[in-house]
Simulated scan of single mutants.
Amino acid sequence: MTATDARSAAAPDQASAPVLTPTLGRRLRASRGRIVIGVVAIVVAVLGVLIAGQSAQQRPPLDPASATPTGAKALVEVLRAHGVDVRPATTLEQAADAAADAAPDQVTIAVYDPNRFLPVAKLAGDDRLAERTVLIAPPKGMADALRAAGRDVAVIRTASVLENQHIAEGGNAGEAIRLLGGTRVLVWYTPGLSDLGVTAPKTIADLTPPWVTPLIVLAALIVAAAAAWRGRRFGALVIEDLPVVVRASEALEGRARLYQRSDARLTALDAVRMGAVGRLATRLGLGPGAAVTDVCAAVAARLRLDPAGVRGTLLDAEPRTDAELMELTRRVAALEASVTGSNQPGEWHR
């Protein structure tokens, strides 16, 4: 069978077979629920990272729990590894409570007050604090006031040497451990607004009614459930035939218009040839599986015609214009009629 035979045999099957491969638009419409859920998850993750990053950046300098470059977590972890119990405090009361359960000679209090919240007289006059005090970048006069009150005072002039980004430089780590790790307990005291007797401004969380948070959580759960409900597909889509009857003439005219619009003259002629070859094979007793070349030879022998001319009509000739298409179609019809005896044998090649 030649290439034209294969094309002729495949044309009707391709035309009648339904297109089952989903297009890009169908895939997007079918997956829009999953896409929405994915986008929401990505947005939530990005917002979480940004909020966490801003929260980390808003930590004060030398925060013992901060791993940022300006925090002091590296030094605190090293001190704890050396057996020192580091206790953070942000108010004078917290500092006094942290030092209360240990012997006075086993407690060191490190004071870092970059905002100058703690009055010097208040710190010097509180006898509940440890006798050994380490001042980190203190204001002028604080060390002298504490010494006058009988305290053992050590001073670290620059706070940056204790930061995570500088603690490993030079001898910073060793000097810090020597000053801060000499006792069993270290109270890391960073004064806040309460040490001034000033009430801190209320945050959004303080101003928000208690029922708002559960409502937000409930709304988030409802949105997630709705997204899962609308976005989930239980298996692949099923294609069902609609109860519509299309008349054969309408299908024929529609296909003809498509061929005409795309100038598919050879495809249209092949459709005519395919039907004629099948009917000729049946009438000549060759069977439906006969090759086109065998049908051409049998037709030429039956009608005593030139085999090359018959082959050109049924197989080889290709129309270049609409007029040639109509002429070849008429010749195919005349040849088929001649075989059945309805026309004269030589009419088909005029």
Rank of each mutant, 00 (worst) to 15 (best):
A224C: 07
A264D: 13
G275P: 04
T267V: 09
E250R: 04
V238G: 00
S249I: 02
Q260I: 09
A271S: 12
I222G: 08
A271Q: 04
G275R: 00
L258W: 04
L221C: 14
E240K: 13
R247K: 06
R261W: 11
D263M: 06
A256D: 07
Y259H: 14
A271C: 05
R247A: 15
L269V: 01
D263W: 00
R230C: 10
G278K: 02
A227K: 02
R261G: 03
D270T: 05
A228M: 12
L237Q: 11
V244S: 06
A264R: 12
V272T: 06
A251M: 03
G235T: 13
R255W: 03
R233K: 14
S249Y: 01
Q260L: 08
R233H: 11
E240D: 15
G254V: 03
D263L: 07
L218V: 10
I216L: 15
I222A: 13
E253C: 02
A251T: 07
T267N: 08
V246F: 11
A224V: 12
A248E: 10
A219E: 05
V246N: 06
G254I: 03
R230M: 09
A256G: 05
V277D: 02
I239V: 13
L215F: 07
D241R: 13
Q260E: 15
A236L: 13
L221N: 10
S249N: 08
I239L: 12
S262P: 01
L242H: 12
V245N: 07
A256M: 09
L252W: 06
A224Q: 01
P243F: 09
L269E: 04
R265M: 13
R247I: 07
L237D: 12
A256Y: 01
V246K: 00
A225H: 10
V223W: 00
A227W: 02
A264L: 10
A264Y: 00
L218N: 01
L221T: 12
A268F: 02
V223I: 10
F234W: 06
A219L: 10
L258A: 03
R247P: 05
R265I: 01
G254D: 12
A264C: 07
R257Y: 02
L252V: 11
G278T: 02
V238M: 00
L242E: 15
V223A: 15
V277E: 02
E250Y: 04
G275W: 00
L266T: 15
A226I: 08
G275F: 00
